[in-house]
């Protein structure tokens, strides 16, 4: 097998181990509640319920799902088997809706909000940062402080200010939700228009923050690269500035690509605050609701999804980075 193949296998192994650990934690945490987790959960859920038959039925459902009459390791295998067969448990809060169904309905909203926002913010931020570093002068004096300012505001503050200014005061955009609640989701123009109108404000808030962070990072990296020896050498050999700028920005981009991949990976978890502020029907809002309702299956469903996304993003970076940067490829090979 080639050195790169070995590297991939080794990396895969370690990510697999990490995944097992993440699953084990997901499995253990609800079971660390004092006493019998199922009765605690069921007791909370059935507060106010008087019909003992109903309580018994709820209890039995969860007891069977958790397999709490079995020893711990058997329970773990049942849990893993359930995960693999797509049975991620039943939500307490929205009983008897399965967790997978809730997650499946939320994922498109989260991805639809975050992915375009991160990409747009990333591209604009990097261009601005590069321009600030390269053109210096007025560009740098304007772009850098503004980026720093935007980046320094805590995200929830920014989101609330935007909500207050553009939705509450100016009434340009709706206050909350993913679409108008009077509508029934369909593929009509009216519905799509409503989705877009609700999408704009949270989208802009994420774009703005992403631009800030990316512009600062790109500016620093570009300045560093512009001062490196190869720039001077290329200049003295008569290579035109536009080409040297290409060298510099390609090299300055490398760490930014990691940043992009990471923020796409943490997208699901990172959307929490944005979705809460704008009451957007994505994973973040569901997770927040689940935490408030102590909806353990839904919480572990969300955390497992986040863990999966982060691991997948990191694994992808590890695989593709060697192709983008020969220095990292060399380091990868040396490990073998």
């Amino acid at each position: 097998m080639s050195a790169y193949g070995k590297y991939v296998v080794k990396k895969f192994f370690w990510y697999f181990v990490t995944l097992i650990v993440a699953i084990a934690l997901n499995f253990l945490l609800p079971r660390m509640i004092e006493g019998n987790p199922v009765s605690v959960i069921v007791a909370q859920m059935t507060q106010g319920m008087t019909e003992s038959d109903t309580i018994k039925r709820v209890y039995d459902t969860f007891a069977a799902e958790f397999g709490i009459d079995q020893p711990l390791h058997v329970q773990f295998f049942i849990y893993v088997k359930n995960l693999l067969t797509g049975n991620w448990g039943t939500s307490f809060g929205l009983y008897p809706k399965p967790v997978t169904e809730i997650l499946a309905s939320a994922i498109p909203w989260t991805i639809g909000l975050q992915l375009p926002a991160i990409l747009v913010g990333w591209i604009i931020g990097n261009v601005l940062g590069a321009v600030a570093a390269y053109r210096k002068g007025v560009f740098d004096k304007v772009i850098f402080p503004v980026a720093l300012f935007v980046n320094s505001i805590p995200f929830f503050t920014l989101a609330i200010i935007m909500l207050y200014a553009f939705a509450l005061t100016l009434k340009w955009f709706p206050m909350h939700g993913g679409y108008d609640y009077q509508m029934i989701p369909s593929l009509s123009w009216e519905f799509i228009g409503s989705v877009l109108r609700h999408h704009t404000l949270p989208f802009l808030s994420i774009v703005l923050v992403t631009i800030g962070g990316q512009a600062i990072g790109m500016r620093e990296m570009s300045i560093y690269e512009l001062n490196s020896d190869y720039v001077l050498y290329s200049k003295l050999l008569g290579i035109r500035d536009s080409r040297i700028a290409r060298y510099v920005f390609r090299n300055a981009m490398l760490p930014q690509i990691t940043g992009l991949a990471l923020s796409i990976g943490t997208m699901v978890g990172g959307s929490l605050i944005c979705e809460i502020v704008f009451s957007y029907p994505g994973i973040g809002t569901w997770m927040f609701t689940a935490i408030r309702q102590l909806d353990y299956p839904l919480i572990s469903g969300c955390t497992l999804l986040i863990a999966l996304a982060v691991l997948l993003a990191n694994f992808t970076i590890d695989l593709i980075y060697g192709w983008i940067d020969p220095r990292i490829k060399a380091a990868q090979m040396e490990d073998q």
């Binding site: 190869y230 290329s234 003295l236 050999l237 008569g238 060298y247 090299n251 490398l254």
Partner: peptide, 22 residues
Amino acid sequence: SRVSGREISYIPQAAMNALNPT
């Protein structure tokens, strides 16, 4: 375009870093 690299060329002090790494 006419002089640099063609008429007058240059060997930098730190050859280690003089080449674009990528």
